[in-house]
Nucleic acid binder design. Structure first.
Lengths: 123, 123
DNA sequence: AACGCAAACTAGACTCGGTCCAAGTTCGAA
DNA sequence: TTCGAACTTGGACCGAGTCTAGTTTGCGTT
């Protein structure tokens, strides 16, 4: 655990925002100015491989966003204008996919994407 | 409606595959070899704006995929290995998002993403 | 404390999907 | 037939992410 990784991890923990790599780079750079972009990407990929983060991209995204909650199942609330993503804790079960619709897939996960416009973008 | 647009539209209609722009370019190019990439992108964007197509991107994908079904609500079955996306017709209602979880969003759509591994990628 | 090595970091070149733009082409209305 | 608007083309450009070569860092060993 190096200073660089700690800086990246700190930026992500404790919120349910899904930041882009660039946002992480910017925020972590305020703590550790000589941090390089490559290290941010390396660290994000490692954390993702370890299962600590999840990669999301809605909105036909050309940029990835990193979900700090890699473990608990949850849904997503997405602003289709600005791309903001927030977590939603599940309260009901997600409808199961009928066997005939599975097309031979081995299913791992099912989550709901709620799309709309956030307050900031509406005003 | 020009020959180029017809070629692009033809590639997309009649299946429930979500092709990438490059795949569309390639397939449409077999019919109309002098077709340019820019035209493919222009046409895809226009069709999306018109509501005929929907842009999807799951799996933290950096490339967009175009869903030929722009009108009917439906869910998605995604292969997390190769990125293949297929439509699934809804049979049950999607659980509604409780008001207290909406955070001021104006909701437009809710759909389910089923993630797994397709038969090809498993073998 | 000094050494040596592996792991991690950096900067910059590179790739790739997508967009932009200036110039050329097509098509329909007058 | 002419004219203008809309469409298409190819190539330059942009931005997110990856790769790589060289440097720095941290740590176990002596």
């Amino acid at each position: 655990m190096t200073a660089q990784r700690r800086a990246v991890a700190q930026v992500l923990t404790g919120n349910n925002l899904h930041l882009t790599a660039d946002e992480v780079f910017e925020r972590a750079g305020q703590v550790l100015p000589e941090l390089s972009r490559a290290t941010v990407y390396n660290t994000l990929n490692e954390l993702t491989d370890m299962g600590e983060l999840r990669v999301t991209s809605f909105d036909g995204g050309l940029t990835r966003r990193y979900d700090p909650n890699g473990h608990d199942p949850h849904h997503h609330l997405v602003c289709t204008v600005c791309g903001l993503v927030q977590d939603v804790l599940p309260e009901q079960d997600v409808p199961e996919l009928p066997r005939r619709d599975r097309r031979g897939f081995e299913l791992h996960d099912a989550h709901i994407v709620y799309e709309g416009i956030c307050t900031d973008c509406r005003s």
